[in-house]
């Protein structure tokens, strides 16, 4: 299965469906080991934290060369700011993938759907591979698809909360209705939750806080890598349907098989 189950995104064929991040680490020096342990091939980095000055402790130097960089627009409050950050990222040599985060609510860090769609439209037109972070809303997802998004990144729960798939039903709808890949981003706190998202049919998961703030980030990265793989395998193998009650007989239709005159 590993040979054939690749995830095509932005012109790349990914064999890992776990995306990781660079935020919240006590030591960025852990990042290479986290990438290796998780098997991840895509890593997101906040452009606001990238410091290319000579002598600065630049997060970029910790990112292994084989990783696909997914710069994000953390800190953008409007589409205009997100667009400017994306252009800066490209000019700084971070490639043409961009994760759009437009957040103007610092209490819950919920994404602004309208501004996200606007930024997606502009950046997709400019040739970026646009991965917008969004609230799992079908209408916004359709608008993002029309605007040229390469994938949709719905939140499982607000960023950093580790609350899991609180938006499960909404994500399920996106998986069913959208032809674009669905990458569950934010809120995943445990490997079992990532596994659940993959079992549901999500194409990939992005996990940062739960790995970066674990007591053993490398061990947790490995656990997430395995959980995402297990969930994907389960999805491909076809999960059995779930019944609420044991079915020993057919109380409603059993009469069809009984001979007339029987009790």
């Amino acid at each position: 299965m590993e040979q054939t189950d690749t995830f095509e995104l932005g012109g790349r064929a990914l064999t890992s469906r776990l995306f990781t991040g660079t935020g919240k680490y006590g030591d960025d020096g852990l990042i290479p080991a986290v990438c290796e342990a998780s098997g991840s091939q895509v890593i997101t980095v906040a452009l606001r934290r990238v410091d290319l000055d000579k002598g600065a402790d630049n997060v970029m130097r910790h990112i292994p060369g084989h990783m696909t960089l997914l710069p994000n627009t953390s800190g953008a409050r409007t589409a205009d700011e997100a667009v400017r950050i994306a252009r800066l990222a490209r000019a700084m040599g971070c490639g043409n993938w961009i994760k759009i985060e437009v957040i103007s609510d610092n209490r819950y860090l919920l994404p602004d759907g309208y501004e996200t769609v606007r930024a997606t439209e502009i950046l997709a037109r400019e040739g970026f591979v646009v991965l917008p972070y969004m609230n799992p809303d079908l209408y916004v997802a359709r608008s993002l698809a029309n605007a040229g998004a390469a994938a949709i990144m719905p939140l499982g729960a607000p960023i950093g909360t580790n609350r899991g798939l609180r938006t499960e039903e909404m994500i399920r709808i996106l998986i069913e209705e959208m032809s674009l890949p669905i990458i569950v981003d934010a809120g995943i706190g445990t490997p079992s939750q990532a596994c659940q998202a993959m079992e549901m049919g999500a194409h990939a998961c992005l996990v940062n806080t739960a790995i970066a703030t674990a007591a053993d980030p490398i061990g947790m990265a490995r656990a997430f890598g395995q959980a995402v793989q297990a969930g994907r395998r389960a999805y491909l193998a076809g999960l059995g349907s779930v019944a609420a009650l044991a079915r020993a007989s057919s109380p409603l239709t059993g009469f069809l098989d009984q001979e007339e005159g029987g009790i």
Partner: peptide, 20 residues
């Protein structure tokens, strides 16, 4: 900070006013 497992963050914003 590093000895206590914390990362000192020097840069936390990218000025946008000069960019296109």
């Amino acid at each position: 900070l590093r000895a206590r497992g914390y990362q000192p963050v020097f840069k936390d914003w990218e000025p946008l006013e000069a960019s296109a």
